[in-house]
């Protein structure tokens, strides 16, 4: 086990803060440049609900004041940054007056749960298969069949999700079509609820797993080929160590390390893929939240949810960066 050099830690921390700050700023600037006025959208919704709105101008004024749209831009920006730091994204305009943070807090556990499960499964399956493809002693079937199966792993999870949903849910009725738990079960820490959650979560997780394990398997294959040619592997073989021991302790142990860095680069895409999967399965996570917010033109929710997802992504990259020197002592961090 290595030790994290302080300079390295500081640099990673700066990158993390910069990422979050730039993302937050982008999210703030973009809607400001557009001609759409959130107060008018709310008023439009009231008008659509009630037929007519009396004192429309006054309501518009008070709404604008409520959202702080009359302040100078710099003041708005500073307020926004302060709110973002405290996770206060204001009130949802579609389900007014629910705070956006409540909506996110409700959706986030679903997304995180699905993500952690599918990513863990994918990482292990993918790396194991990638290693077996190169290992000389693995069954012939593994070395021939997997590369063929690998071709299908280039498609994004939304497409595999649609196909699985059609065949397993709509046609064979093995799994529920949409939702994250059954309508008849009460949410809570009960066995029937957990069962329902697992039953509903299986297909979304599967559609992510089947198309993402290939990325790791391919990377692992390339790394294993390199490790196979190294002198220490040759020496281990010459010493007459058991092949299985060489596979685990010499080959995989060394080949897995760059895979972990690759993981940090891949998180962003995984998150985006999962959001789309959640949208087609109407899974109660962030994907559905964002999709519904887009339909309702609910800007505070879109902003808040996007920000939180980017924050999560940046945090996980940061964590991977921190773990890396601990498992690979060879790495010297110049900066």
């Amino acid at each position: 086990m290595g030790r994290i050099p302080p300079q390295y830690l500081i640099n990673r921390l700066i990158t993390l803060l910069l990422t979050v700050w730039i993302a937050a700023t982008l999210i703030w600037i973009i809607p400001r440049l557009s001609p759409v006025d959130p107060a008018e959208i709310m008023l439009g919704r009231m008008a659509a609900g009630a037929g007519t709105v009396e004192n429309a101008d006054q309501i518009l004024q008070s709404l604008r004041a409520r959202f702080g749209l009359d302040d100078p831009l710099l003041v708005q920006y500073l307020k926004y940054i302060r709110n973002v730091v405290t996770f206060d994204f204001g009130l949802s305009t579609a389900s007014f007056p629910t705070p956006v943070s409540h909506l996110i807090a409700r959706a986030l556990p679903w997304t995180l749960g699905l993500m952690i499960i599918s990513v863990t499964i994918t990482f292990f399956i993918g790396n194991a298969l990638g290693a077996l493809m190169v290992w000389e002693r693995s069954p012939k079937l593994v070395r021939v069949a997997i590369p063929v199966a690998m071709i299908f792993t280039s498609i994004p999870p939304i497409l595999s999700g649609l196909l699985l949903m059609y065949f397993l849910s709509a046609k064979m009725r093995l799994f529920p079509l949409t939702g994250s738990y059954g309508l008849t079960v009460e949410p809570g820490w009960t066995w029937s609820f957990a069962q329902s959650v697992m039953y509903h979560g299986f297909l979304p997780a599967l559609s992510i797993v089947v198309v993402t394990f290939g990325f790791w398997a391919l990377g692992m294959r390339g790394l294993m080929i390199t490790v196979q040619g190294e002198d220490y592997t040759k020496l281990a073989e010459a010493k007459g160590l058991r092949p299985r021991y060489i596979l685990y302790k010499y080959m995989i142990r060394n080949a897995i390390l760059p895979q972990i860095t690759a993981f940090a680069l891949k998180i962003g895409l995984l998150v985006a893929g999962q959001i789309l999967v959640e949208r087609i399965f109407a899974y109660n996570g962030m994907g559905k939240l964002i999709y519904d917010a887009i339909l309702d033109q609910d800007f505070p929710v879109i902003q808040g949810a996007s920000y939180i997802i980017i924050l999560m992504t940046a945090l996980s990259v940061f964590l991977v960066d921190l773990i890396y020197p601990l498992i690979d002592p060879r790495i010297k961090h110049e900066r």
Binding site: I14, A272, I290, I294, T313
Partner: peptide, 22 residues
């Protein structure tokens, strides 16, 4: 530093904000 920062941000989310606004 900028490329390290930008590689972490999922393009989909920023683009969602952009297109929802425009």
């Amino acid at each position: 530093v900028i490329s390290d920062v930008m590689i972490t941000i999922p393009p989909l989310l920023i683009l969602v904000v952009f297109q929802a606004a425009y």
